[in-house]
C-alpha cells in the first residue's frame, strides 16, 4: 500500500480521527467513573433517593 506524495496529509487525517475518537471514549468512561464514585460516596453518607433505593442501585 503506497500513499504517494501526500502520505503525510493522509496519515495526519487518520491520526487526528483516532485521537478525537479516543478522547471521546476516554471522556465518556472517566465521566461514568466520576459519577458512580460520587453516588457511592453519597450512599455511604446515608443520602438515599426518595424511592428508597440506593443511589448506586441498578434497576
Amino acid at each position: 500500500m503506497s500513499l504517494g506524495p501526500y502520505a503525510s496529509f493522509i496519515m495526519t487525517s487518520y491520526a487526528a480521527a483516532a485521537l478525537v475518537v479516543a478522547t471521546l471514549i476516554g471522556w465518556v468512561m472517566i465521566d461514568y467513573r466520576n459519577q458512580t464514585q460520587r453516588l457511592r460516596e453519597l450512599d455511604r453518607s446515608g443520602i438515599t433517593r426518595r424511592s428508597g433505593r440506593s443511589a448506586t442501585d441498578r434497576p
Partner: peptide, 27 residues
C-alpha cells in the same frame, strides 16, 4: 454506530450527574 454508542453512554452519565446533583442538594 460509534455516535449511537457514545451518545447512549453520555446520556447515562448525564442521568447519573443529575442524580448526584439532586442528592447533593438533599444533603
Amino acid at each position: 454506530l460509534l455516535f449511537i454508542t457514545l451518545h447512549l453512554a453520555a446520556m447515562r452519565n448525564e442521568i447519573l450527574r443529575r442524580r448526584v446533583r439532586s442528592l447533593q442538594m438533599m444533603q
